[in-house]
Simulated assay, not measured.
Amino acid sequence: MAQDRPDIPTALKRTILVEAGHRCAIPTCRQTPVELAHITPWSKIKEHTFDNLIALCPTYHTRFDRDDIDRKSMLQYKQNLEVLNGRYTDVERQVLKVYARILG
């Protein structure tokens, strides 16, 4: 980890891991162990947030970092976890879709 980048707080790590069931968030993978990845790179936002972190196995984390998997796909995987966990209502999910399109 870079010296100027603080560690992800333990409580936030736990929340991200629980969200994904302590497995890779890619539905066809679901491997363990997992690493936490920033959906929008740390270098651009300089903060650790729930909405921008996702649990990935080392293979998919590497593929995401190499741009083999694009950011829009990763946002969809994150959204899938939100739906599976019942975190948002249908209206909230629609707003998030619009927001994702604007950012995409």
Rank of each mutant, 00 (worst) to 15 (best):
M1H: 12
Q3R: 15
D4S: 08
P6S: 08
D7V: 12
D7A: 15
D7T: 12
I8R: 07
P9A: 08
T10W: 06
A11K: 15
L12P: 02
T15Y: 09
T15G: 11
I16K: 09
I16W: 05
L17W: 12
E19R: 15
A20H: 01
H22N: 15
R23W: 04
R23G: 01
C24F: 03
A25F: 01
A25D: 04
A25L: 04
I26K: 06
I26L: 10
I26R: 04
P27I: 13
P27Y: 06
T28C: 09
T28D: 12
T28H: 14
C29A: 05
C29G: 02
C29E: 13
C29M: 05
R30T: 15
Q31H: 12
Q31K: 11
T32E: 13
T32P: 13
P33S: 11
P33Q: 07
V34P: 02
L36Q: 04
A37C: 07
A37V: 00
I39N: 01
I39A: 05
P41K: 05
W42Y: 11
S43F: 00
I45M: 09
E47A: 10
T49P: 12
F50D: 09
D51C: 03
N52L: 02
L53S: 07
L56T: 01
C57G: 02
T59H: 07
H61Q: 00
T62S: 08
R63G: 05
R63C: 06
F64D: 01
D65R: 13
R66L: 03
I69E: 03
D70M: 01
R71K: 08
R71P: 00
M74F: 02
M74A: 04
L75Q: 03
L75A: 00
Q76H: 06
Y77L: 03
N80V: 02
N80D: 08
L81P: 06
L81E: 11
E82Q: 15
E82C: 13
N85P: 11
G86T: 14
G86V: 14
G86P: 13
Y88C: 11
Y88H: 12
Y88W: 13
Y88N: 13
T89F: 11
V91T: 12
E92G: 11
Q94I: 12
L96G: 03
K97I: 07
V98D: 07
Y99W: 14
A100G: 08
A100Y: 01
